[in-house]
Amino acid sequence: MRRQGLLLLAAWLGSFWLFAQQSGWKHALSYVASKNQTPIFERNTLWELVWQHLNLCLFSMLLVMIIGLPLALFVTRSYGKPFLGLVSNTVNIGQIFPPTAVLFLFLPIFGFGPTAAIIALFIYGLLPTVRGGLLGLSTIPEDQSNAALGCGMNAWQILWRLEFPQALPSILAGLRTSLILIIATATVAPLVGTGGLGVPIIAGLSTNNVALVLEGALPVALIAVLADMTVRWLEQVLVRWA
């Protein structure tokens, strides 16, 4: 598991090194570009595009965690119980909404620009995380919560020593789904007025320029796969007991 972690770290560092090789990309992509087309996106370097993309995703993800986990916690406490049905129902219906459609639903409300994109990414990313949190926190084995109570744990100790660790696998699975969805949906977000790796893809698709499309598609695919593997690795490390 340690070795897997080191490999992942190396893969991340390697990818970032790769993203920094602007002239290398230009050279490589010029093989697929047709003669009179630019082989590489010129307004931003690839490095900048990657950072824009990651910023967008990580900021929305941060919001998802800050709002989503406390929300799941709130509705599974005794004082939040009345709202449990509402939240789980909304989350279940919301998951049927296609993420890209949601992205564009927020466009008329917040107008073009990063705000609409971040809010849409955040709201859609919220769904899997809240769902995972609800699932984990509401399926604590009854014998264990009885034992915790019988041991003399107070509500706070039960939360930290029993419920949170027991819910961790579902929470992490939810976060992973959210992250992957956000990374993928953020690729379409340039249509709503943001930067990121979707910019060259969309530009390339509309001008029939394969090189530009690949300049965006390859890095974003790499980032998505690495992010997925990283969270999976985290799940293994943190949940040794399952």
Binding site: V32, A184, I202, L205, V213, G216, A217, V225, A227, D228
Partner: peptide, 20 residues
């Protein structure tokens, strides 16, 4: 599972050259 992690328009993009 791996296929599912790829963003859709990235996959469109990756399919473009071979299909063309």
């Amino acid at each position: 599972g791996l296929l599912q992690t790829l963003p859709s328009i990235a996959l469109f993009g990756l399919l473009l050259p071979p299909l063309a």
